[in-house]
Nucleic acid binder design. Structure first.
Lengths: 168, 168
DNA sequence: AGCTAGTTGCGAATGAGACGCAACAACGAA
DNA sequence: TTCGTTGTTGCGTCTCATTCGCAACTAGCT
């Protein structure tokens, strides 16, 4: 399914070039620590957390601080070059709806809205998935901006806190 | 899309009954604080975090502790009566793959595996979604157990920490 | 080579969530 | 209905991810 092996390292250097180009374009300075973080990120095929990136960077450059890693990660995130897993940037959120349903995630305010769709409920996954393990259910996560955030001209990250935790 | 208004409160009492029945069946005591937490959860249409639930419960029962809310929430989660949003229970994880792809989330070890599927990339959402706002991209999250966890007979939650943060 | 604004690293602060334990209370038994 | 057992509660404490303030530092333009 993932047919990534053939071009893993090419994809890596390509991604690295993307990071540096985008940084230069954004007027962001290319410090050695940033370059090293870029290298680590470009090479990864997994979904590391900030600590994992930090550890990997420290192997080559032992003095980089945790903070710099966090800052760089969010910088790239703001530029749209890395994403975060799941809708929330913060605490765990619960979903009391256990029936089949899907999510509309607003990248502006963090609100998550349920929606139902019979056609999306029984999505067929590619056959290769069976080699991974057993899938119990699938759900679609649609990311975008809700009307309020569109109107407010709100971008993606930042201001993600106030409404994010609803229920007063 | 969400056609929930007609039966919101029915769904709520129904859900409350489900919680109490399941608890009784599991031999879990129905304390007043738990019942109140159940009521709050059964009534919510959103995706609250633990703090939000705590605040809502405290409005009616000011002495309940934060801890009891957490414990009850995870209890329900273990019974499969509430879910969490997104794959991670802990820190933020990053995804360096910005191209269209989808996720296989292992509920046992927390590992997330990418997979690609052209048919899943351009999923059509129900028309009602346009009233919510603008969707920039959709991705499928398939939840299940990877081979290793299946073999280890690992259930869902718990032991979710070790492998969850890969990249060494 | 010199400037200067953007960066770094550190120590400390914040805040979610987990833990240990003693007092407490469901609820089946008598 | 009372009793006893055992699961629960709430508190104080602890951990650990992530963020902040700030002084020292340096990319990159001139």
């Amino acid at each position: 399914m993932t047919r990534k092996k053939p071009d893993a390292s090419e994809a890596s250097t390509e991604r690295l070039a993307l990071y540096t180009a985008a940084s230069r374009a954004a007027g962001i300075r290319l410090t050695p620590q940033r370059l090293e973080i870029f290298r680590v990120l470009a090479a990864t095929e997994s979904h590391p957390d900030a600590e994992a990136v930090h550890r990997a960077v420290q192997r080559v450059m032992p003095t980089v601080s945790r903070d710099t890693v966090y800052r760089t990660l969010w910088r790239l995130h703001d530029m749209g070059l890395v994403a975060t897993l799941g809708p929330s940037r913060d605490r765990v959120r619960f979903d009391t709806n256990v029936g089949p349903h899907h999510h509309l995630v607003c990248l502006g305010c963090g609100l998550v809205q349920d929606f139902v769709s019979a056609t999306l409920d029984g999505l067929a996954l590619p056959p290769g998935v069976s080699q991974w393990g057993r899938v119990y259910d699938t759900q679609v996560e649609a990311r975008g901006l809700c009307l309020a955030c569109l109107k407010a001209g709100r971008a993606t990250r930042e201001t993600t806190q106030e409404k994010a935790s609803d229920e007063r």
